[in-house]
C-alpha cells in the first residue's frame, strides 16, 4: 500500500512518519506512535473519547485524517501533565471525584481545556460548561462532578488554563 511521508508535531515533539492516506490521526497516535491516551470507541465523532487538541482546539481525532494535521500542532492528554506534575484540570478531576472508569476523561479534560481557553478572561457559567462538554459521552458519572471540577478550575484561573 502507498505510504506518504508526514511530519507531525505531537506534544511539542516532531514525528517523522510514513502514513497511508486513509489513516486517521487517532490510528496514528494509538497504533503507530503508541500514545493510547486518546481513546477509541465509536469512530464517528459521536462519543468524544478520541478528543485531542489541534492548534489548541478540541477535535475528534477519529474523523481527522493524519494528513490533515500536516504543519499543525497536536496535543494529547500525555502532553498535558504527568502524575508528578498534574495540570490544574487533571488535579481538579481527581479532587472532585470526577473520574470513574476514566475512559472518557482524557477527552473530557482536553475538551474542557479548549473551552476554557476559548472563554479566557472571564469565568464561564455552569450551564456554559455543561454545554461545552456535550460532545463527549460519559456513562459513569452523570457529568455532575466533571462540571464541578471544570467550574472550580474556571473560577481559579478566570477561564484560560
Amino acid at each position: 500500500m502507498t505510504r506518504v511521508p508526514l511530519t507531525l508535531s505531537i506534544n511539542g515533539e516532531m514525528h517523522e512518519l510514513l502514513v497511508a492516506p486513509h489513516w486517521t490521526l487517532l490510528y496514528v497516535l494509538r497504533t503507530v506512535i503508541g500514545l493510547s491516551g486518546a481513546k477509541e470507541n465509536c469512530l464517528e465523532a459521536e462519543c468524544g473519547v478520541c478528543t485531542v487538541l489541534l492548534d489548541g482546539k478540541a477535535v475528534n481525532s477519529c474523523i481527522l485524517l493524519a494528513e490533515q494535521c500536516r504543519g499543525r500542532s497536536i496535543v494529547t492528554i500525555e502532553g498535558l501533565g504527568t502524575s508528578g506534575q498534574l495540570h490544574p484540570l487533571q488535579e481538579a478531576f481527581i479532587r472532585h471525584g470526577a473520574v470513574q472508569c476514566g475512559y472518557c476523561i482524557p477527552g473530557m479534560i482536553l475538551t474542557a481545556k479548549s473551552f476554557l481557553d476559548e472563554t479566557s478572561g472571564r469565568v464561564p457559567t455552569r450551564d456554559e460548561i455543561r454545554e461545552a462538554i456535550s460532545g463527549t459521552l460519559c456513562r459513569c458519572t452523570g457529568y455532575q462532578k466533571i462540571i464541578d471540577a471544570i467550574a472550580a478550575v474556571a473560577a481559579e484561573t478566570k477561564g484560560g488554563t
Partner: peptide, 21 residues
C-alpha cells in the same frame, strides 16, 4: 472519608492501560 481514588492519576494523565489499549 471523601478520599480520592487510588487510580486517579494514571487515569487523568492517559497512562492507565485499558483492555482496548
Amino acid at each position: 472519608q471523601r478520599l480520592p481514588r487510588l487510580d486517579g492519576a494514571p487515569k487523568v494523565t492517559g497512562r492507565f492501560v485499558y483492555g482496548a489499549d
